[in-house]
Computed example of a mutant assay.
Amino acid sequence: MSETGSNDTQSKAGPRLILASGSARRRALLTQIGYPPDEIHPADIDETPREDELPRLLAGRLAEEKAMVVADRYPGDVVVSGDTVVAAGRRILPKAETRDEAATCLSLLSGRSHRVYTGMACAGANREKIRTRIVETRVKVKTLSHTEIDLYLDSHQWSGKAGGYAIQGAFAAFIIQIVGSYSGVVGLPLYETANLLRDALGRAPAFPAD
């Protein structure tokens, strides 16, 4: 089911922007850079990694597949999608759905650096091709005590999040260093996304007022 965006955005000439994700974070990020989506249409795909699939390739493949699935429903419009993969070495961490899953992720990330791969894909209105970008960010986490892990688990901010954490929430207090795109870890790499949307939509951003 799609969700209609603002009337002001829909009234603009040219193709509409469709976000192929139900993520409130991605919607907010697009609005932040002046491209609020006209409609929200989450993509329903199998996100299971393929055998021996590398984390970087998984992020790009899932973003592209999401864009392709939703683009078929919106001919003439621009579709943007994203996917975030958290990896400890070559190990792909799940989108934590249970407290135990989240606890396992946090224990793996404690006291070490890990990589976050964010894929974003943009299907232009003419559908000639889907343009994909993959951004890598390194995140270093402090050594977490059992008490800190339990308190974070109690917050439920980990639910449904890749790697069992949301960097824009309380977990930010545990981050020692970020090398790369902060917004990519949140949900979309904004520099790359803005460049693709400017070309695909053929219009300048409309920045929100304070």
Results as ranks from 00 to 15, higher is better:
residue 10 Q to C: 02
residue 133 R to T: 12
residue 176 I to N: 12
residue 48 T to S: 09
residue 90 R to D: 15
residue 91 R to N: 05
residue 24 A to G: 07
residue 18 I to K: 03
residue 87 A to Y: 03
residue 31 T to I: 00
residue 53 E to C: 08
residue 122 C to T: 15
residue 74 Y to S: 09
residue 84 T to F: 13
residue 190 L to R: 04
residue 41 H to Q: 12
residue 85 V to G: 07
residue 187 G to H: 12
residue 116 V to F: 14
residue 162 A to V: 07
residue 144 L to T: 02
residue 62 L to T: 10
residue 117 Y to L: 08
residue 29 L to C: 02
residue 124 G to T: 13
residue 190 L to T: 10
residue 50 R to M: 11
residue 86 V to G: 05
residue 74 Y to I: 13
residue 116 V to A: 10
residue 45 I to W: 04
residue 83 D to E: 11
residue 208 P to N: 00
residue 136 E to L: 11
residue 86 V to L: 10
residue 105 C to F: 08
residue 76 G to E: 02
residue 105 C to A: 14
residue 26 R to G: 09
residue 68 M to A: 15
residue 128 E to K: 14
residue 141 V to R: 08
residue 107 S to C: 05
residue 81 S to N: 05
residue 128 E to C: 08
residue 16 R to A: 10
residue 74 Y to M: 09
residue 170 A to D: 10
residue 51 E to F: 12
residue 66 K to R: 12
residue 47 E to G: 11
residue 93 L to R: 08
residue 55 P to V: 11
residue 8 D to G: 02
residue 80 V to R: 00
residue 71 A to E: 03
residue 127 R to G: 13
residue 38 D to S: 14
residue 49 P to S: 13
residue 187 G to K: 07
residue 196 L to W: 01
residue 174 F to P: 00
residue 159 S to M: 14
residue 46 D to Q: 03
residue 73 R to T: 05
residue 119 G to P: 13
residue 175 I to L: 10
residue 146 H to E: 15
residue 78 V to R: 03
